[in-house]
Amino acid sequence: MDLTTLTDSEFEQHRLDVNAEQNRQFSLIVIPQQVAQLSAQFLTAGGDQATLDAAIIPEPVEEEPATETETPTTKEA
């Protein structure tokens, strides 16, 4: 991508997109470390492993099937 050809608006959007991706990648690195640290603190304080497991990997919630919405019909003259 040639950044010199972007308009100010396009450049700003690209900058925001890059920033969002950097934050996403940072989260992928940091969150597991935070979970490990907090898990250790929880267990050291006497927390139950099953409770911790349930919090980290919650039971899947079944979604209700989507219903089709009716669209109004018009009569042509």
Results as ranks from 00 to 15, higher is better:
1 M>V: 05
1 M>Y: 00
1 M>G: 03
3 L>E: 01
4 T>Y: 05
4 T>F: 02
5 T>N: 00
5 T>K: 10
5 T>E: 05
6 L>I: 00
7 T>R: 00
7 T>K: 05
8 D>F: 00
8 D>P: 00
8 D>Y: 02
8 D>I: 01
9 S>D: 07
9 S>Y: 09
11 F>P: 02
11 F>D: 01
13 Q>H: 03
14 H>K: 03
15 R>M: 05
15 R>C: 03
16 L>V: 02
18 V>E: 11
19 N>H: 04
19 N>K: 08
19 N>P: 01
20 A>L: 12
20 A>Q: 10
21 E>W: 07
21 E>L: 10
21 E>Y: 04
21 E>D: 06
22 Q>A: 10
22 Q>D: 11
23 N>A: 12
23 N>Q: 15
23 N>T: 12
24 R>F: 11
24 R>I: 08
25 Q>D: 05
25 Q>C: 01
25 Q>M: 06
26 F>W: 12
27 S>A: 12
28 L>G: 10
28 L>Y: 05
28 L>H: 12
30 V>E: 10
31 I>V: 13
31 I>L: 12
31 I>A: 08
32 P>Q: 04
33 Q>L: 14
34 Q>D: 10
35 V>S: 00
35 V>P: 02
35 V>R: 02
35 V>I: 15
36 A>E: 15
36 A>C: 02
36 A>Q: 11
37 Q>F: 05
38 L>H: 15
38 L>I: 12
39 S>R: 08
39 S>Y: 06
39 S>N: 08
40 A>C: 09
41 Q>P: 03
42 F>L: 10
42 F>P: 02
42 F>N: 05
42 F>V: 04
43 L>Q: 09
44 T>K: 10
45 A>N: 12
45 A>C: 09
46 G>Y: 04
47 G>P: 06
48 D>H: 08
49 Q>I: 15
50 A>L: 13
50 A>S: 11
50 A>E: 13
51 T>L: 09
51 T>G: 14
52 L>I: 05
52 L>V: 06
52 L>C: 05
53 D>V: 07
54 A>W: 04
54 A>I: 03
55 A>P: 01
55 A>D: 09
56 I>S: 09
56 I>D: 06
57 I>F: 14
57 I>N: 15
58 P>F: 14
59 E>H: 15
59 E>A: 15
60 P>D: 09
61 V>M: 12
61 V>S: 04
62 E>Y: 07
63 E>N: 06
64 E>L: 14
64 E>V: 07
65 P>E: 08
65 P>R: 06
65 P>W: 03
66 A>D: 08
66 A>Y: 03
66 A>L: 08
66 A>S: 09
67 T>C: 00
68 E>N: 04
68 E>G: 02
69 T>Q: 14
70 E>N: 07
70 E>D: 11
71 T>A: 11
71 T>C: 01
72 P>D: 10
72 P>R: 09
72 P>Y: 05
73 T>K: 07
73 T>G: 01
73 T>L: 07
73 T>D: 04
73 T>Y: 07
74 T>Y: 14
75 K>H: 09
76 E>V: 15
76 E>Y: 08
76 E>I: 13
76 E>S: 15
76 E>A: 15
